[in-house]
Design a protein around this nucleic acid. Structure first.
Length: 877
RNA sequence: GGGCGAUUGGCUCAGUUGGUUAGAGCGCUGCCUUCACACGGCAGAGGUCGUGGGUUCGAGUCCCGCAUCGCCCACCA
């Protein structure tokens, strides 16, 4: 038995609180129950009563800790988030009712490029780090045509200001949705705790060799002017063209024609490459050719990655056109001829072309300063003029790498960056992370495939530095040599108790502020960490790692990470990496992966498609319980359409619960509810209810909240349509006090169970109906046990309730087809059925006759169920 | 190119280890001005379970192939 099971067993051994849920002496049931106003009323009461407050005196084994991925607060609220977070909340509420102390904090992911972009668009500004700080800066009312350049510090201040506003809106939304998070425990990924945790973890990674700095070719976004990581790439199909380009051998017949989609990179060419087995180029390996237009000498080489099927089977290697170039460049140990600037334009100063340099430079002069696209157009013209363009360009579409939020293709530039090891270059480490993936419990299990294919496909380490402004700075300074050059080899680091630091304003030990930027002095690392480098520590940040050791000991490793499928390769994997390094453990035991939210046309919702639905109007129109109902109907990991019809159904269910509760409690009235349950129908219903509790509980244990809801709902509609109708007359006392007492006890028992089963889903309406007759919040009640229901019905026959409902249904059908009222008198009913079912019918005949207004009922044994109904004549109008 | 998931009435989806006439809601049709509920209730019509094989006494459910859709991964000249 593991630690958790021991704790569970200990809890189970404690005598449970009053199980019968006796009604309060004085019930307060509205004359006309309504959903209106319930959300405001109960949100306020939950706050006042600290219903969802985490009790930090509980031991780890008693705690259920949920690592909610902080939503990105920049940008608009999205129905997809509502979908996932509402689902998670049903789990949280279930665990809480099971007796777990639920640790359920909420964070806001506010640092990073997403926020910067929002600030740029919202205020119409852009950050220019060369500008001085303006303490009196007032941002433009409305963004103008030209972005206003402001200093880095001003820019960060605007970021800080805007995220506070955004976070208020998010909290308002989540509160309205009824998320049972402890709002006293929010955090932000740019907040001090997050900065301290990020920097502390980084320093430890660095000390252990898990973080390192390297100068290397890097995927680069020319618009945001920052390096980006493999995890942030996406492929997009782009129109392009194969250009046949002639490279020259010794004789005119020795031309080698290559096909390229990027002729503008000819000046960056360092070699040609073909497959070693390719007969066409066997004789050329080891020889040299000269590039078209520029006349630069490059070798012809062989490499297994070259694909004989592609183009003419031989490719030019440029530094750098794509990631394959980087592989060839590294493995064939080629020189670098960089022409691509960080602004996406060809650099002014040409690379080293050797002897051909002076001539080549003349050609290059008119390309310098052009964008890749402009340069390509011009170079094609030049190739045509020189006759080195072979044939017409052949249009193709091909996948091109983009930054996922970018608008222009990524370039590859060489730059100095920070990395975390993640197995991309070390098979053993990669295997360790694959093992972690198998150690984690995935719901649904097949989602692990995405993790595996991502980890198996890693080909670089995790690039964490960004040349941006609003993020956690690297806690690193560098010495400046006497000649002013930066000494990257011996970075200066703060101690952990100094964190968080900002190296652009803080000064390393042993230096004075006026030595910043001076030869012999120091400079701070100018970069910030990518947002994932902080987000990957949310389990540590939320649980107070290093800041609150007591809390950390009670909550880490956490139990559950709920999240969307699109961030398995980033958030989930990165978080596994960090916990593996720092704690040699998983960050959590389970993960639930929700599905996509699709629009009514079954298209994935995304901003670019313009089909995003904002959640606030949905909540206002249908109500939180209705929206939660819709979300909870989306099965784990299954894509779900945005369906307002489902929300209407949810709303109707909530109203039904109001009215059925009112009715049942009205029937019970002032009478006692502790009479023995003696009537077969009551006992049979409670037996079925006990089965329901078993079923729903096991569904929740498997994280299948959708099944739990569906089963509860199905039982409840039958309970309303059949049981309440069947028991109505007897409960009013028309057949005597014993039968009435049994009915009232069964009604009270069923109501107490059903209201609690619905509580994780319909959190507002269940709070309301529970309060009519019970003390305390329903959301802090113990989860029903099967015995709460069938404990009152030992030996009951499940058939009784089934047969009663079927016979009643048959009678209703006849009345409906005869276009008569459901109250129409029935003179006689003849039921044919199997003996065991007729026995059941005999036990509950009185209830069936009462509900169907049936004067006489006969039975006859037979093979199949059949009912003949004689209606009384219609009374004269 | 590799992988994962899906394919059930007009729509959205259930269908837990293969077992008698395949379920629900929405929509549609009809009825009921019932004393919990008109933000109702009752009932009805509507499906060769994508397709072709196979295993089995028996397959929506298991196996193989195919098709379509969605997604993930991939070195994309």
């Amino acid at each position: 038995m593991d630690e958790r099971s021991v704790a569970q067993a200990a809890r189970d051994a404690v005598p449970r609180a009053e199980q019968a849920f006796r009604r309060l002496p004085r019930m307060e049931i509205p004359e006309k129950p309504s959903l209106d106003g319930l959300e405001a009323k109960w949100s306020a009461r939950w706050d006042d009563g600290a219903v969802y407050r985490f009790d930090r005196t509980k031991a780890r084994a008693e705690v259920y800790a949920i690592d909610t991925p902080p939503p990105t607060v920049s940008g608009s609220l999205h129905m997809g988030s509502v979908f996932g977070y509402a689902q998670t909340d049903t789990i949280a509420r279930y665990r809480r009712m099971r007796g777990d102390e639920v640790f359920y904090p909420m964070g806001w992911d506010d640092n990073g490029l997403a926020t910067e972009r929002r600030v740029q668009n919202f205020y119409g500004v852009r950050c220019d780090p060369s500008l001085p700080y303006d303490p009196d800066l007032v941002p433009p009312e409305k963004p103008g045509k030209q972005a206003v350049p402001i200093s880095r510090r001003n820019f960060v201040e605007l970021c800080d200001r805007l995220v506070v506003e955004d976070e208020k809106k998010f909290e308002e939304l989540w509160r309205g949705l009824g998320l049972s998070v402890d709002w006293a425990m929010t955090y932000t990924t740019i907040g001090e705790r997050s900065r301290r945790a990020s920097q502390r973890a980084f320093l430890r990674n660095l000390a252990r060799g898990e973080a390192y700095q390297a100068e290397a070719p890097t995927l680069w976004d020319v618009d945001d002017r920052t390096a980006v990581a493999q995890a942030e790439l996406e492929d997009r199909e782009l129109a392009g063209a194969y250009h046949g380009v002639a490279f020259h051998g010794i004789g005119a017949a020795d031309d080698i024609v290559i096909e390229t989609t990027r002729p503008e990179l000819i000046p960056a060419c360092v070699a040609l490459v073909a497959h070693p087995d390719d007969a066409r180029y066997q004789s050329r390996f080891g020889t040299e050719v000269t590039t078209p237009l520029f006349g630069v000498t490059v070798p012809v080489l062989s490499h297994a990655l070259a694909d004989p099927e592609k183009g003419s089977g031989i490719a030019m290697i440029c530094t750098f056109g794509d990631t394959t170039d980087v592989v060839w460049w590294r493995e064939l140990q080629l020189p670098t001829r960089n022409i691509m600037g960080r602004d996406g334009r060809l650099v002014a100063d040409p690379p080293d072309w050797g002897p051909a340099g002076p001539e080549a430079a003349k050609r290059y002069a008119e390309l310098a300063g052009k964008t890749a696209k402009q340069a390509q157009a011009r170079i094609v013209e030049l190739l045509e003029e020189s006759g080195e363009l072979v044939g017409e360009p052949k249009p193709i579409t091909h996948p091109v790498k983009f930054y996922e939020r970018g608008s222009r293709p990524l370039e590859i530039v060489t730059s100095r960056q920070w990395y975390f090891r993640n197995g991309g270059r070390e098979p053993e480490l990669r295997d360790a992370f694959l093992a972690r993936g198998r150690e984690l419990h995935w719901h649904p299990p097949h989602m692990r495939q995405r993790y595996e294919s991502w980890v198996e496909g890693l080909n670089t380490d995790w690039l964490i530095s960004r040349q941006r402004f609003f993020g956690v700075p690297f806690p690193v300074w560098y010495r400046l040599r006497p000649d002013g050059e930066v000494d990257y080899d011996a970075p200066m680091l703060p101690t952990e108790d100094q964190l968080p630091v900002d190296p652009s304003s803080d000064v390393p030990d042993g230096f004075r502020a006026d030595q910043r930027g001076e030869p012999g002095g120091f400079i701070g690392d100018p970069d910030v960490m990518d947002t994932w480098a902080t987000s990957s520590l949310t389990p540590q940040i939320a649980t107070g790692w290093g800041d609150d050791d007591d809390l950390f000991a009670r909550t880490f490793p956490m139990d559950l990470r709920p999240q969307g499928p699109e961030i398995i390769r980033t958030w989930l994997f990165d978080t596994v990496v960090r916990a593996h390094f720092e704690h040699d453990s998983l960050p959590w035991r389970d993960t639930t992966i929700n599905g996509w939210i699709l629009d009514p046309e079954r298209k994935k919702m995304s901003k670019s498609k313009g089909n995003v639905v904002t959640p606030m109007p949905m909540l206002e129109q249908h109500g939180a319980d209705a929206v939660r109902y819709w979300a909870a109907n989306g099965r784990p990991g299954t894509d779900t359409a945005l369906d307002e019809g489902q929300m209407k159904v949810g709303r109707r269910l909530a109203i039904k619960l109001l009215n059925a509760s009112k009715f049942a409690l009205g029937v019970i009235g002032d009478a006692a509810t502790d009479a023995p349950v003696t009537e077969p129908l009551d006992r049979s219903m409670l037996a079925a209810l006990g089965e329901l509790v078993r079923d729903v509980t096991s569904a929740f244990e498997e994280y299948d909240y959708a099944r739990a809801l569906e089963r509860t709902e199905r039982f409840f509609w039958g309970f309303c349509d059949d049981y309440l109708e069947l028991v109505k007359q007897r409960a009013y006392g028309t057949t005597g006090e014993s039968g009435a007492g049994s009915a009232r006890a069964a009604l009270a028992t069923a109501l107490a169970v059903l209201q609690r089963l619905f509580a994780p889903f319909l959190c507002y309406v269940t709070a309301e109906v529970w309060s009519w007759w019970q003390d305390g919040s329903v959301h802090r009640q113990p989860w029903p046990e099967p015995g709460d229901a069938d404990g009152h019905a030992a030996g009951a026959d499940a058939l009784d309730y089934v047969v009663a409902a079927e016979v009643l249904g048959a009678v209703r059908k006849v009345k409906s087809e005869a276009r008569r009222s459901m109250r129409a008198e029935v003179t006689h009913v003849a039921v044919t059925d199997t003996p065991d079912r007729l026995e059941a019918l005999a036990r509950i005949e009185a209830d069936v006759r009462g509900a169907g207004t049936i004067a006489a009922l006969d039975t006859a044994p037979g093979d199949a169920f059949a009912v003949v109904v004689d209606l009384a004549d219609e009374p004269a109008a």
